[in-house]
Simulated assay, not measured.
Amino acid sequence: MPLDAPKLNSLGFAKPPSETRVVVAMSGGVDSSVVAAQLASEGYDVVGVTLQLYDHGAALAKKGACCAGIDIHDARRVAEDMGFPHYVLDYENIFRDAVIDEFADSYLGGATPVPCIRCNERVKFKDLLETARDLDADCMATGHYIQRKMGAAGPELHSAADAARDQSYFLFSTTPEQLAYLRFPLGHLSSKAETRALAARHGLVVADKPDSQDICFVPDGNYAAVIEKLRPGAAEPGEIVHADGRVLGRHEGVIHYTIGQRRGLGIGGLSEPLYVVKLDVEAKRVVVGPKEMLSTRTIPVREINWLGDARFTSREEWPVSVKVRSTRPPREAVIRPISDTEAEVELLSPEEGVSPGQACVFYETEGSRILGGGWIWRGH
C-alpha cells in the first residue's frame, strides 16, 4: 500500500467510521447484539434491523427460538442502550414462501432439509441485504461465526477461528457478490466466552442470554408435528420393511423418520440393530437394514455455489474436504464437475447416513477456506 494511501477502517473502508453506515442484522441474541454494540462503540453509523419471521402468537413460535417476540424486544433494548436506530421488518410471508413451505415439501418428499441455509440464502442475504442497500449502507454485518478474508481474487470465505462455533456449513451458498458486501466481525474470536465478555463490557441486557437451539420454527425439534400442522393429513400410515423384503411392522407416517435413524422405529424383538436406510415416499414405506447399508462413498450434488478462484468446470477433479452434516468433521474427497452447478463427490473413505436434503460443503484440504457447496439430492 502506498504511504499516502488512506488508512482503512476496521470494516475495510477508506473513510472514518462515522462516515461508514453499516446495517447489522440483529436476531436479539448475544452474537448479533455484540456486533452492533461493538461497531457503535467504534463510532460507526449503525442501523439495527430485526426480522419478524413468523406469527409470534402461533403454536410454531417457541420461547428461546431465534426471532421470537422476546428477541425483537431484546434487540430494541440493545439499540436504545447503545444509541442507534432499530427497525423491525415483517418478513413473515417471504419466510413462509422461501423457507417454511420448501421445508415441509422437502420433508414430505423423504429428504432431511436444512432450512437455516435457505433462510440465510433467500431471506437474510437476499431481501435483507437489498434493504441494507436501500438504506445506503456501505455494508451489512451479522453475528455469524465465519471469517471473510481478502485474497488475490477478492473476498474469500473462511472457517471461524473457533472450530466449535464455526457456521460455515450454513453459509456455503453465500455468493461472491454478497460476500463483497457482508462483514462477520465475530469470526476471528477464539471462543464464545470472548463474545459474552464483550457483551458484559458493553453492559448489554443479553450478555447471559442462552443460545437458541433447534430450528426457529420447530418447537423442541419435533419436525413431524410442524409438518402435520403445515400440511394436515400428510402423515399417512404404511409398512416398515427390511431391505430383504420382510415386513416388520407399521408406521404412522414417513415424516416421523430420517435416514440413519435407529431409535424409535417401532419394531422390537430383532436380533440385530436396524437403521432407516431408505424412505420410499410413493409406496409409504420405511426401509430398514443393517448399519453397513448406510455407508456410501459417492454423493450426487446439485445447486452448487462455487467460491473457488478458477471456474468450477475448468478441472476434471478438485481434491477437497467435505462436510455432509453440520456436526461432522470434514472428510477428504474428490469433486468431479458435471456442469457449473452439478457434480459427483467421491469420498476417500465411506460416510454413514448421507441424506438427500442435507448440504455437502467443500473446504480446502489445507487451510480454512470454504470453496462452496451444494445439495445432496438422492439416496446412495
Rank of each mutant, 00 (worst) to 15 (best):
G143P: 10
K229D: 07
L270E: 08
L270P: 00
V206H: 08
T175P: 04
A161L: 03
V281Y: 03
G238F: 10
I215V: 15
F184M: 12
E177F: 01
G264K: 08
F217Y: 14
C216Q: 11
P185D: 05
R183Y: 09
R250M: 12
T175V: 04
P232F: 12
A161Y: 03
S212P: 13
H188M: 07
L198K: 15
K284D: 12
S190M: 11
I267T: 02
S159G: 12
V206S: 07
K149R: 13
P273M: 06
S190C: 06
T174D: 00
T195Y: 06
T142P: 04
K284T: 09
L186P: 04
C216R: 11
G187H: 03
I227H: 01
A161C: 00
P155W: 01
G238T: 10
Y275N: 12
V226E: 05
Q178S: 05
A164K: 13
P232H: 11
K209H: 08
G269T: 05
V205P: 14
A243E: 14
Y223G: 00
Y257R: 05
S191G: 11
M150G: 01
E239G: 00
H158S: 02
R201D: 08
A141E: 01
F172H: 15
Y223R: 07
L189S: 00
G264P: 03
E282L: 15
E272M: 11
V276N: 06
I259Y: 05
V254K: 03
R165K: 14
K284P: 00
V206W: 09
D208C: 05
E282P: 10
P273E: 12
A207F: 07
P273C: 06
T195M: 12
A180G: 06
D162C: 14
L157C: 01
G253Y: 10
D208N: 15
A243Q: 13
K278V: 00
D244Q: 05
D208M: 06
R148S: 02
Q261F: 07
T195H: 08
I267R: 01
R183H: 13
F217H: 09
Q178E: 13
S190E: 14
G238E: 07
E252L: 13
R250F: 09
H158I: 01
Y275H: 15
L186A: 07
E228M: 13
A225S: 15
A283G: 09
G143W: 13
E236S: 13
Y257H: 12
G253H: 08
S212W: 11
H202W: 15
A164D: 11
R165G: 00
T195F: 09
A163V: 11
L198G: 05
P219L: 08
P185E: 07
V226I: 11
G245A: 10
H158A: 02
E272V: 13
